[in-house]
Structures are given as C-alpha cells and as structure tokens.
Design a protein around this nucleic acid. Structure first.
Lengths: 200, 200
DNA sequence: TATCTTTGTAACCGAATGGTAACATCATAA
DNA sequence: TTATGATGTTACCATTCGGTTACAAAGATA
C-alpha cells in the first residue's frame, strides 16, 4: 500500500522466499534472487533480518511446517480408538504422501534437508525428528502390536514416501510407476495400505 | 608419467570427477573444480571432451553404475531357485542398502538425480529404470506370489532405502534411528527382512 | 521550519563461475 | 634440421554471487 512500510516490506521478502522455493527450487534461493523476486533492495534483507539465515529463520517460523505436519498426526492419535487404529493407520500415511506430492514448498525443504547442512534447515529437521519419535511411540503404544520393529519399518516406509514425492519432480517413471499421474500415485497409496495391513 | 600424454590427461580429468563427487558432493562439480582437482588446465576439458556434459558422459560410460547395480540383481535372479527365492529376497535388498551406504560416488549420483535434470544424469536414470522394470517382472514371475502389488510395494521399499542412504549424509537420526552407526543400519536391514517376509 | 531517524536505492567490491583467445612447448615427420 | 600439428598453460572475458558503502527520500519531532 504505502510507499515506505517496514512490515509490508518484510512480508514481501518472506513471500519471495516461498515463491522462489516453488518456482525455482531451493538451489536458486539466494539473497540476490529473493531481493529481485520481491522487487526490493537486498540491503533491506541485511537490515531487517540481519543475515540471510535470519531471513530463513523468520520464514521457517512463519510457516512452521514441522509443527503442522505433526498436527494432523497428533489429532489423529488423540481421536483414534484402539479398535479403529488399524484401519485408520494406512490413511495416515496416505495423507502424508498426498500432502508431500501437492505441497511443493514442503517438498523443496525436504529436498534441501537432503543435501545441505544449513543451520536453519538442520534445526527444523531436529524438531521434526523429536516429534516423529513421540508419534511413533504413541502408535506403538496404541497398536499394542506384537511387531517389535515398528520404528524401523515405519522409518523405511516414510522414507520411501519422501523419496517418491521428491523424485516425481525430476522423473516421471520409477520402477514402472508414473509418479506424476493420479493413477500412479493411487498405485502407491494402495501399496501403502497393503504393506501396513500385512505388517501390523 | 610422461609430460605430455593425452590419454593420461583425460584419465586424470575423469578421476577428478569421481574425487569431487566423493569429497565435495555433486553441487561442487564444475569445470573449474575438475581442472583444479586434476591439476590440469580447464581448456583441455573443452578440447578433449568438447563440453562439460561430454566429460560427464565419458565419466558415466566408464563407471556405468546403472549396469553394475543391476548385475548383482541379475546374477541373483539367474541362480535363484523357486524354493530359496523367498529367503534370499531380503538379502538382495539388504545388499542394495549396504552398497548405497558405502558407495559415496553412487550416493552422490542418486542425490543428483533427485534435484536436477542434467541430460547425462537423466539418461542414466532411464537406463536404470528399464533394468529395474525387467528385474521386477522376473521377481514377480519367480515368486509366483499372490501379491498383485509387487511392483508398487517394492517401489516404496527401494525408495525408502534410497532416502535413508542419502539422508545419512546430512543427519544422524531419522525416526529415532541413527543412520550413521552400524547398529542403526542393522536395524534397517532387519526391518527389510521383516517387511519382505510379511509381504510375500 | 529545521533537524534527526527510518526506509529505501544505486553503485560498488572481491571472489568464483563458465568460457575463450593467445601463446608456449613438445614430438615427430619432412 | 626445420617445419608442423598436438599438447598444455596463462591470462583474460562477462556474469553472478554475497556483502558493504554512500547517498537519497520520506516521516517524525523539535
């Protein structure tokens, strides 16, 4: 609106970060790119966020993916009764996969985690790791499954869903499955159900 | 050895590519870096390989990962009898995981596949994709499993192993499992066995 | 109105990138 | 021995990167 407005300018810069992640990928996320995309001098990034990492921290704080991603899981666990747990568990992982496929911003952050040790990204990873462990413990507790390797097996499956979602950006086919079509994605979600049903 | 030797020089440049992948990661793989690592003028890269992509193509041709990675699988399939197939199948995936964890060069190429569409990397991906499909068909054929979703379920598992191997570079813990210790890696390989046994 | 702080931009810096041109050196065939 | 093509290096180019300095414009305050 106004010509000189700190709050608005900061928001424009933060929005530019998200735009670049979606439109250009995290590898093109830099101070110059953000300033250009926001149409604002990069000097203000240093002035308002001190640092490029400061900008990223504010971005992460605003978006707090790791918490949101956990919330759906937590809600589910709170409302799940023991008897409907087994039938609902596959849905949980299916939702996780669908979210990952659709949310390109989150996808880029996961891709980022996978190849750089940026302190900001690292912190997000640690927080999400803690939440993940708590969730798994709760799942194991509720399921009362005789399966001792819940943590390990779910790790493999979750990792698989991450990889498939990320891979869909750079390739169509993986192991004969088209990762970019609804049909291919449904083959994956059906497989999730099959695996979980046989496992627990 | 000799002061002026084209063949030797070309080899030094190709070796430098592998060194950079292992020591610095694919994101630092560039013409200047290769020349510097090889201790050879970058002009010779253009002269001998025409292009940076030409250098990468020669590197890929020399290493032909996608074929090697398939070979262990193919050998296994050729020697497997129907009755020992079920018990041997987990070993196959476990070996795949162990190789990925150890072979940092291959790891970098998989990481590369995951975030860029370099034509050279893309070609490698396509060749490996074709081999993968053939292998999966063979597995399904031999297993004669009533499980209709072999392709889909193995896709999830293989993808999971890829992700865990790649993630181990940037983080220690994933879902409460230490990806960098032998103990953590063994928890994964045991989980592979559990999953496959229950699936097929 | 005059002064001082905040918000903003333009212009520059050094380092690193991919790429090229000019030149030096060696091996060998005439 | 001399000329020629292959092998190799140095020096440069334009561009882009993160980062800084200097300065202008707007708002607030006295």
């Amino acid at each position: 609106m106004s010509i000189k407005n700190k709050k608005e300018t900061k928001q424009k810069l933060l929005d530019a970060v998200g735009k670049i992640l979606i439109e250009d990928g995290f590898q093109n996320l830099g101070i110059n790119a953000v300033a250009k995309k926001a149409g604002i001098s990069k000097v203000l990034i240093y002035r308002y966020f001190n640092d490029f990492d400061g900008l990223l921290s504010s971005f992460a704080e605003q978006k707090d993916y790791w918490l949101n991603e956990g919330s759906a899981f937590t809600d589910f666990l709170d409302h799940a009764k023991e008897n409907d747990m087994r039938s609902a568990a596959p849905k949980l992982f299916q939702n996780m996969f669908n979210d990952l496929i659709r949310n390109r911003e989150l996808q880029e952050i996961k891709r980022w985690e996978l190849f750089e040790n940026n302190p900001v990204i690292e912190n997000i990873g640690k927080m999400r790791e803690e939440i993940g462990i708590k969730q798994m413990k709760k799942v194991a507790e509720i399921l009362k499954s005789d399966e001792k390797e819940i943590q390990e097996t779910t790790a493999v499956i979750i990792a698989g869903l991450y990889y498939l979602a990320l891979r869909s950006k750079t390739t169509e086919m993986f192991n004969g499955i088209n990762l970019r079509t609804k049909e291919g994605q449904e083959r994956i979600t059906r497989a999730i159900e099959t695996i979980l049903n046989k496992l627990f």
